[in-house]
Design a protein around this nucleic acid. Sequence first.
DNA 1: CGATAGCATCGAAACGATTCGATCGAAACG
DNA 2: CGTTTCGATCGAATCGTTTCGATGCTATCG
Lengths: 318, 318
Amino acid sequence: MVDVAAAAGVSLSTASLAFSGNKPVSAETRDRVLAAAGALGYAGPNPLARNLRRGRSGVVGVAVGRLSTAFRDPAALPMLDAVSEVLDAAGLGVLLMPDGDEHAGLPLDAVIYDICGCETWGPYDDLVARGVPLVVVEGPAWPGATYVDVAHRRGAADVARHLHDLGHRRVATLTLDPSHPQREREAGLRDVHPDAEVIGPCASDLEAAQRAVGAWWDGGGAATAVVCQSDVQAAGVVLEARRRGMAVPHDLSVAGFDGVATPWLDLELTTVVQPLAEKGRAAARAVLSRIAGEVVDDVLLPVRMRVGGSTGPVPPQV
Amino acid sequence: MVDVAAAAGVSLSTASLAFSGNKPVSAETRDRVLAAAGALGYAGPNPLARNLRRGRSGVVGVAVGRLSTAFRDPAALPMLDAVSEVLDAAGLGVLLMPDGDEHAGLPLDAVIYDICGCETWGPYDDLVARGVPLVVVEGPAWPGATYVDVAHRRGAADVARHLHDLGHRRVATLTLDPSHPQREREAGLRDVHPDAEVIGPCASDLEAAQRAVGAWWDGGGAATAVVCQSDVQAAGVVLEARRRGMAVPHDLSVAGFDGVATPWLDLELTTVVQPLAEKGRAAARAVLSRIAGEVVDDVLLPVRMRVGGSTGPVPPQV
DNA sequence: CGATAGCATCGAAACGATTCGATCGAAACG
DNA sequence: CGTTTCGATCGAATCGTTTCGATGCTATCG
């Protein structure tokens, strides 16, 4: 930039102002600087230097576990999409932080942690030491982090009560790996059905759910309703039930969680619809506020139970 | 770091060496420096400053179009996963560059462009001006970029010949939006079936494919085989055909592309298996080489036709 | 007409590291 | 014992900006 300034016959500071516009510069001067830049093939201020000066990198890390599994979950995509949308609008980039890699040495302005499951996480100490704002979505409680959470327990309890109202007393639940949402939802279920039987844990995956619930039935498991931790799991349970000659919801009620589209099914699931995009937006907004140095309140997003065609009255004889 | 150096009673340069290890430092000195850092709560060299000095940001951009659509495609994920794996191993971060946002001002060491479709792309000029290496995966020809491509035409021609050998003469093809792979594959099909009828374009999406091919049949379209541009599309065509009482492959042969899992189907598709992960690895390796300043050859990856249960001999009477 | 603003511009000091070349002992060598 | 070598350490330059405070200079005001 010093060459450009020299060529334009102005000082370095003026050239900088001509590019950044942080202070007024006469139109004529600006044109001269821009012309000089064009002539010298100068593409504008070097981002690395700008970042050092500003003390910001313009990059926000998003911890998502292993990519291939994180994005296979249909609930993850709308969330990440919303995060990206809000951050991009603020001029910030989104950097993927797969698990396992420590990502030390990358300058991050903030980090969003959205791995459901991981209780210990390598980068945490480093982030704290560096004072990097951390926003945790549905994760374990860590000191210093801002939390965005969803009313898992409430949603799960709503479903549990719905089933109870339909007469169900033998309820089983297909669980995920231990994680914050999983625990909350199980607690919500037990608020109504204290002795619900646990199947699993199994992954949030069509085939895995089919296998898990199939093995449970094979082992003599019985229930009039199965509460799942995701709509994908629920779809798997419905398919497996039908394969075994059970009609849903006549012989078996099945409930899901998330409220995503289930193209594998001709049935609308009874489920807990969570505001996926809003979750992402809330996380991104929290990041922006914390980068701006503001104190940010934790966010708890509401959920809404949607009664679909996968739950019905308990069968007369079981 | 100067405080740490002072506290440890060494010079700034020595403290730097103690952290980076770029030159030998006596063990005793290093320990003193690290101890001082611990006492002062210094978390290590500031990445922003390091980056400015090194002239690298350690971040590689990946252009993927709109997130929500890019990752819905099951062929995209293994590729991105492989990219991330190779780059992470090299200590580089992966930054998502959704389309539309210009991402100016972010310091990127290189960019991988993998949007099938976009012919014009905002950031291109800026990247060229800044001399940022660009690796294009299955994209249009741009000066200065390194190319990673797949033998689309060859694969499509293999499928076309397979159908021809089975006796098919009335072949239709369900197309994607105009894009490099799309054009290549259509050319491959026409190498064998010059007058194949075109359906679409439609998105690589189960429902979209069902609607498109359904509308085509409703409009009087007829063929003994439908060649699709993705396995997802092919699955949609199979489902729609069955819904209309056609048996696959007895009444209709359907071919896909990609070689991904199709959990919606009880059938293994005849398709063209492309090396998705290898595509990502090749792109990432190309990035690493170009960052290192090496001259990199374009890569053309082979494909393999897999004959599954979705294609069969042409029906006796049509 | 003198004091006060206000605007454009400039010089210089950060920002926080890495690294080249120099220095200084001590060890190795003949 | 004098000389070369080597390893550890240090000083200073550099990376390329942004921005604070100062300096003229020209309108504006009373």
